[in-house]
């Protein structure tokens, strides 16, 4: 029986993948299999979310990492020969998927943002190329078709408690030469910028970390959140990673986006395309952000922002 497999390390991601799987399965009469960590009675959640079969992964040893499962899942996939395998495009998921695809000698669509089944059964997948300058459509010529899906691209599958399914435990993974010796959890932002109505984005035009307060002041005034470019979160560590907007970060869709000292490289702009009004403050009139913006101020953000705050205060108190 043909089938769709989903694999995810977390419940929220698994449910998003189930949304896609369930949609395709209902069109094509396919069985849906969810491969998920064994966390007590959670299997029911996945069955309600659309899975017909659950393959449970036993808890890993403290020093083992998720990729220890690759040989086990590759062996299962060779036996069952699914049509499609979907994974979440998290750091671990993308690494896992590429290695699984190598073992299964098949193609993989990375960071797939849309997926449709044609009349003839071909699965057409879309992804961004050239930093977001283009949308590439691909199909896979080998079996199984594989794709990684960025988190939050699809809504979580709603629960249907009338469904039933089988549950099976997978054999434990073989020992791996890679050992995890410590895990450090990073500071996470308490705000979800993907849902924010206004986003003030901090770019490398900010000279020092303390100056982020300037952006925060502006954000507070318009009830928005502060986000940033990749160099700010990843190279300078001034803000948490989950505030990085763009190709390798999150997509935002606020009514208002204001970039302060953001150059507007394509990899960043691709993350703000869904914004209704894009504004930029940059001292370089040739900065690419001005091509992507609706309203721009050419000037030094340190001069402009205090004035802007003052004008906004006047305007909003009227």
């Amino acid at each position: 029986m043909p089938g769709i497999w989903i694999f995810a390390e977390r419940k929220d991601l698994a449910l998003e993948l189930l949304t896609i799987a369930r949609g395709l399965a209902s069109q094509a009469g396919m069985k849906v299999t969810a491969i998920v960590p064994d966390q007590g009675d959670q299997a029911d959640i996945y069955i309600a979310g659309g899975a017909d079969e659950i393959l449970l992964l036993s808890a890993l040893g403290e020093d083992m990492s998720l990729d220890a499962w690759i040989p086990v899942i590759a062996a299962e996939a060779k036996k069952a020969d699914p049509d499609l395998i979907l994974l979440a495009a998290t750091a671990r998921g993308k690494d896992f998927a590429a290695r699984l695809a190598a073992r299964l000698e098949t193609g993989l669509c990375s960071n797939c943002i849309a997926l449709n089944r044609e009349e003839d059964g071909t699965i057409v997948m879309e992804r961004l190329a050239y930093g977001g300058a283009a949308v590439q459509q691909v199909s896979c010529l080998t079996r199984p078709v594989m794709a990684t899906i960025p988190p939050r691209t699809f809504a979580p599958a709603p629960a249907d408690h009338g469904r039933s399914g089988e549950i099976r435990k997978l054999p434990p993974p073989p020992s791996s030469p890679v050992r995890v010796i410590a895990r450090k959890t990073k500071e996470r932002s308490s705000q979800d910028i993907t849902e924010a109505k206004a986003v003030i984005c901090v770019g490398r035009g900010m000279a020092k970390q303390a100056d982020i307060n300037i952006a925060r002041q502006l954000a507070d005034l318009i009830e928005g959140e502060v986000g940033c470019t990749r160099p700010i979160s990843e190279e300078l560590h001034w803000l948490p990673d989950d505030l990085c907007i763009g190709l390798s970060g999150v997509q935002v869709k606020p009514d208002l986006y204001i970039g302060l000292g953001v150059s507007g490289q394509i990899q960043h702009v691709t993350g703000i395309r869904g914004a209704r009004v894009i504004c930029a403050v940059n001292k370089d009139e040739n900065a690419p952000i001005f091509q992507a913006a609706d309203l721009g101020i050419v000037g030094d953000l340190y001069d402009v922002t205090p004035n802007l705050v003052e004008e906004l205060q006047k305007a909003t108190s009227r």
Binding site: E105, T106, G107, L108, C109, V124, L128, A129, G132, A133, A134, V135, Q136, Q137, V138, S139, C140, L141, T142, I266, V269, T270, R273, I278, A280, E285, F290, Q291, A292, A293, D294, L295, G296, I297, V298, G299, D300, D303, V304, N307, L308, E311
Partner: peptide
């Protein structure tokens, strides 16, 4: 193993209206 069947440019450009960094502009 993957075949590219289409490549389309995304729309990024907007018509940017530029304001001066003066109190009046702001």
């Amino acid at each position: 193993r993957l075949q590219t069947i289409g490549m389309t440019a995304t729309r990024m450009e907007r018509n940017c209206e530029i304001f001066a960094a003066t109190p009046e502009g702001i």
